[in-house]
Design a protein around this nucleic acid. Sequence first.
DNA 1: AAAACGTGCAACCGATTGGTTGCAAATATA
DNA 2: TATATTTGCAACCAATCGGTTGCACGTTTT
Lengths: 104, 104
Amino acid sequence: MRRDIFQAIADPTRRAIIALIAIHAMTPNAIAEQFDISRQAVSKHLRILTECELVNQEYQGREIYYQLEIKKMKQIDKWLEQFRKNWEDRFDALDNLLTTMKGK
Amino acid sequence: MRRDIFQAIADPTRRAIIALIAIHAMTPNAIAEQFDISRQAVSKHLRILTECELVNQEYQGREIYYQLEIKKMKQIDKWLEQFRKNWEDRFDALDNLLTTMKGK
DNA sequence: AAAACGTGCAACCGATTGGTTGCAAATATA
DNA sequence: TATATTTGCAACCAATCGGTTGCACGTTTT
């Protein structure tokens, strides 16, 4: 099983789930209500997210609250790093600013 | 066919190709030499990358030079934006710095 | 104690993926 | 002109994906 973070975010439903639980922890049932797929399908997505350590599970009685392990997202950012120097955007702008400040 | 940028970077071979042609344009043959898969398999990857406009094609005689359309990578960065405020790293540090500067 | 609820897992299914081989077309070279 | 090179495309294949339904198990509620 490949199951790395890039494969995890490849599916649009999974990205939507990620965005949902980034705000606050949610149970599988609550998540499933937001989509047109079965609770079990959501469960499978959560399993994949769990396998690449993108989510926390917090057991609370018979409910399980899933929350995004937001630090894991940095991994994507890290990969992007190698290309970032080649596009001009707010980060470049900030980099330039810092460089300028250092120079002074 | 889904074929968005997230699906494009889901495959590790494709990520390697992206990293390769980010440096300088390459022909399919030259790219294929770097991997243990057939030239046709590389060609299929390039087709996918082309379909989501991640690469440029420059025809030169019978050769075709493929280069990364680096600006398209910003799309990933843009998606990451919504999570970035929640992790502490150099970008947060820069954000805080900017906020501080604005405040003064 | 019985019933209802929240969850994960297994089995199944059609579509997609990433690879292969073979071939045709265009360009370059002998 | 004949031959070699570079490429894309089609057909095929096994494996994986994203969904489904059914079920078992633990926790709550009645």
